[in-house]
Amino acid sequence: MVRDEMTSREYQVGDAITVPWGLDLVQGTVVGAYGEGLGLRVLVEVDLGDGSTEVLPFPPRALEIAQQPEGQSPPGAWVQASRYEESLSRVLSKILHAHVPEWLGGVEVNARLGEAREIDFLAQLPDRLLLVEAKHYRDVQRPLNTSTLDQVEAYLRGLRRNSPPAVALVVTNAKVPLSVIERAEKYREASVPMWVAGWREWDTPVELEMALAEALRFPVSG
């Protein structure tokens, strides 16, 4: 059994699974794995269609995206989304370690929040939890919807009953309309600590770092 500790997903050797192949999706069979954490790779045997097969390594997040219905995940969407999230994970870790030098932890990917909820990134900091939801769009002109903030707000309220204090951040490569910024401000005024930031892989993460710094300064009680 292959277990991805960061997503709590189990990959059973011999399981049939959909995998990305170029800009298409094909069927393969899980045959093993190697590495751990962000370096974990699931080995999948793929039929090349000419009677031969090849064993290919895939990051778990690419497999997760490939399992989504085609209507929600157009061909090739996994490529950009997976790269974006991997890059964002590294940037988040770098910024957090710079602002919280005493923190020796790491950024957890696809963290479970209860039985039915999952957040893209979670960092257990010395005095708080940081929840980060990433929204990647192929069309960067597509505006981020306020419903994403409402979803994260529900996560925060659910955590308050039985977890350490938590703050949240929504990061997107798309446009951040004024309505979304105002919704986040209203949540903070209501003592729901949430921020939103735009970031693209080729950008210097100035806006992202400013939002994270505010989230880390927000007063919380244990």
Rank of each mutant, 00 (worst) to 15 (best):
M1W: 07
D4Y: 00
D4E: 00
M6A: 06
R9C: 06
R9A: 03
Q12P: 11
Q12W: 10
V13Q: 10
G14Y: 01
T18L: 08
V19W: 00
L23Y: 14
D24M: 14
V26A: 06
G28W: 06
T29V: 11
V30I: 12
V31W: 10
G32E: 10
G32M: 06
A33P: 04
G35Q: 07
E36C: 08
E36K: 12
L38N: 15
V46M: 09
D47N: 14
G49L: 04
D50W: 05
T53V: 14
E54W: 11
L56Y: 08
P60G: 05
L63C: 01
L63K: 00
Q67M: 11
Q67F: 05
P69E: 11
E70T: 15
Q72H: 13
S73K: 15
P74I: 00
P74K: 07
P75F: 12
G76N: 04
W78V: 15
A81S: 15
R83P: 04
E86F: 14
S89K: 12
S93A: 14
K94L: 12
L96C: 02
L96S: 05
V100G: 02
V100A: 01
V100Q: 04
E102D: 09
L104P: 05
G106I: 12
V109I: 07
E115K: 14
R117T: 05
I119N: 04
D120I: 01
L122S: 09
Q124S: 13
D127E: 10
L129R: 08
L130G: 05
L130K: 00
T146D: 13
T148K: 11
T148Y: 13
V152L: 07
E153Y: 12
R157E: 08
R157F: 08
R157Y: 06
R161P: 02
S163P: 04
P165A: 07
V167Q: 01
A168T: 03
L169V: 02
L169E: 02
V170Q: 03
V171H: 11
A174L: 06
V176I: 10
V176R: 04
L178I: 13
I181F: 10
E182M: 13
A184M: 03
A184I: 03
Y187N: 06
E189H: 12
E189R: 11
E189F: 03
A190N: 10
A190H: 07
M194A: 06
M194I: 13
W195Q: 02
W199D: 09
W199V: 04
W202E: 15
W202Y: 13
A213M: 14
A213F: 11
L216N: 07
V220L: 06
S221G: 11
